[in-house]
């Protein structure tokens, strides 16, 4: 790809992401479209988020149990699982699941709408495709990804509890009291801000890739793949940057 095309793509992406964000507070509002997207993104992703986060929590608890038992510190399972899940794994894993299910869906749906002239039809009817197609998807991601993350974190902690109590034979009461202790404002904030940023990134990237689709079935495959790959990369990079900033802002010493 030549530099000019890359810069042009970046400019178009930033414009779309900016207009998508601005569209949330500017008329016209398409509530019904946003509700349909929320149903697809939220209710539709619940089961997969539940399964993935449950097993991530169990695997983490199992790994910690194996390592901490050799040090005689198995009682810290709850605390470490809690911090890892609330601050890091819960938001990131849920965002990755969201990318695979919802982000890929956004890119392929918009891509096929472009190829089938449905986006042109929307423009001919006098609607702004960003307002009509992108803003509802950004809104649904900004609302549903944080909601799914809360559920995912709870389920992960539950998975950790199962392993801690029934495999490592730790006290369940102590596990939950450790979790309660780490649920400080700083820890919760460190995990709660991420899903909003991830949701915005995923929806903007996937909508942009979908709307940039060219060239039939092969083009659709490329744009969908690119949407998922770019979203995953951006989630991982932004997670690191956010962690660095949040640790500093929230007063954690590193």
């Amino acid at each position: 790809m030549d530099i000019k095309a890359l810069l042009s793509d970046l400019q178009n992406f930033y414009t779309l992401a900016y207009r998508g964000l601005l569209g949330i507070v500017r008329r016209p509002f398409y509530f019904k479209d946003a509700m349909i997207q929320m149903d697809y993104a939220g209710a539709g992703s619940l089961v997969i988020v539940f399964i993935v986060d449950l097993f991530v929590g169990m695997a983490l608890s199992l790994q910690l149990s194996a390592e901490l038992s050799s040090l005689g510190m198995k009682m810290y399972i709850g605390m470490i699982v809690g911090i890892s899940v609330v601050r890091e794994l819960g938001p990131v894993v849920t965002a990755l699941v969201f990318t695979g299910r919802v982000g890929a869906g956004m890119a392929s749906e918009l891509g096929s709408m472009v190829l089938g002239h449905q986006v042109d039809t929307i423009r001919v009817f006098g609607f702004d495709p960003v307002k009509k197609l992108v803003v509802p998807r950004i809104v649904s991601s900004l609302i549903m990804l944080p909601a799914l993350t809360v559920i995912g974190v709870a389920v992960s902690l539950l998975g950790g509890y199962y392993i801690a109590v029934f495999v490592s034979h730790q006290s369940g009461t102590f596990y939950w009291s450790s979790i309660r202790n780490i649920l400080t404002m700083e820890n919760v904030l460190a995990g709660a801000i991420k899903p909003f940023i991830f949701g915005y990134l995923i929806s903007s990237i996937c909508c942009y890739m979908g709307l940039s689709t060219k060239g039939g079935a092969v083009g659709l495959r490329q744009s969908t793949t690119m949407a998922v790959v770019m979203s995953i990369v951006m989630i991982i990079i932004s997670d690191f940057l956010l962690t660095r900033v949040l640790l500093y802002v929230l007063g954690f010493s590193v």
Binding site: G116, H117, Q118, D120, T121, R123, V124, F125, G126, D128
Partner: peptide, 22 residues
């Protein structure tokens, strides 16, 4: 784009294969 709405309303287009919202 926003200034083109009045122009587009003068026409009625039927795209190839219909372009219905599926």
């Amino acid at each position: 784009e926003e200034e083109l709405r009045d122009v587009r309303m003068k026409f009625s287009i039927v795209f190839q294969e219909g372009a219905l919202f599926d």
